[in-house]
Simulated scan of single mutants.
Amino acid sequence: MATGHCRTGASGQWTRVYPVCAFLLLVAGRADAHDFWIEPSSFRPKPGSVVSVGLRVGENFIGDPVRRHSSLIKRFTVLQGEEEQPISGSDNIDPAGLFEAEGQETALIVYEGGGSQVDLPAKRFDDYLIQNGLSEIVAERARRGEQDRAGRERFYRNAKAVLAGRYRNDRVTIPIGLRYEIVPLEDPTGETATLDMQLLFNGEPLSGAQVEAISRDWPKAGIVMQSDAEGKVRMHLPQAGVWMIRSVHMRRAGWFSDVDWESDWASLTFERLGD
């Protein structure tokens, strides 16, 4: 499994720590809000209850609602029972959708969005790259003499939320075909503090990717690690409550693209029980 690093202080320097103890205080004041996550009305819905599904963009579990825009949605569904069902809703509304919880087994909410473009000044773009562990992009920009050029990026959102049921279901450990996907290798809704995950890009393991875990109860603290050669990460989540796992993968856009870079944001939210 991958090793962890702790980032502390205003300088943002990194020190190596043990992989299961990488609890840390994140640097405050990120350059731009770049977390996107699913926030259901309940992570443990009762059978037959109506779950409202909020989409959020921000940082450290503080975010603005993302209203539903059907033209930007490629996939917005819930996997429960033996079926994958579309999540219904009206455009320009928060929450973005509603569905009735089956509630018997672990369920999975899935969101996949189309591309959106952002242009950032050079310094802010480099800060954003560094904060997401994308130092190889910083190095490539410098190697090509682009370090003073604004960052033109098209990003795609890939989010999942795990809902606990009366019985645990290993279906949530199976990849569901998002372009960039955080796959828990066990149902994360129980009491187990150690969570094994795998990062997949286009269905293939992604090595060397930065992965960050954030607790909703202590949002300025988190865990930062890198995926190993098999795209796997083992994290120790030291407290119960709602967690978000997030990662960003970036690559240079194609020759005929109107942007320089393409990225995929992946997130996984769930509620871990106490020990």
Rank of each mutant, 00 (worst) to 15 (best):
M1D: 09
M1A: 13
G9P: 03
G12H: 06
Q13F: 06
W14P: 01
T15A: 13
V17L: 13
C21L: 15
V27S: 12
V27N: 10
H34I: 02
F36T: 01
F43S: 00
F43P: 01
P47F: 15
V51N: 01
G58S: 04
E59M: 09
F61E: 01
F61A: 03
I62G: 02
H69E: 09
S71C: 02
F76D: 00
F76P: 00
P86Q: 01
I87L: 09
S88Q: 13
D91L: 01
P95Y: 09
G97K: 07
L98T: 14
G103T: 08
F125W: 15
D126S: 10
D126Q: 11
D127Y: 07
L129E: 10
V138Y: 01
A139W: 00
R144H: 09
R152V: 03
R152N: 06
F155E: 00
A161F: 04
A161W: 03
V162Q: 00
V162S: 00
G165T: 08
G165F: 09
D170F: 06
Y180E: 08
V183G: 07
L185Y: 04
L185P: 03
L199C: 05
L200W: 10
L200G: 10
G208R: 10
R216V: 02
G222K: 10
I223A: 07
M225G: 03
S227I: 05
D228I: 09
G231E: 06
K232H: 04
V242P: 02
W243I: 07
M244E: 04
R246W: 05
S247C: 08
R252W: 12
R252F: 08
E262G: 10
S263L: 02
W265F: 15
F270I: 05
R272G: 10
G274K: 10
G274Q: 12
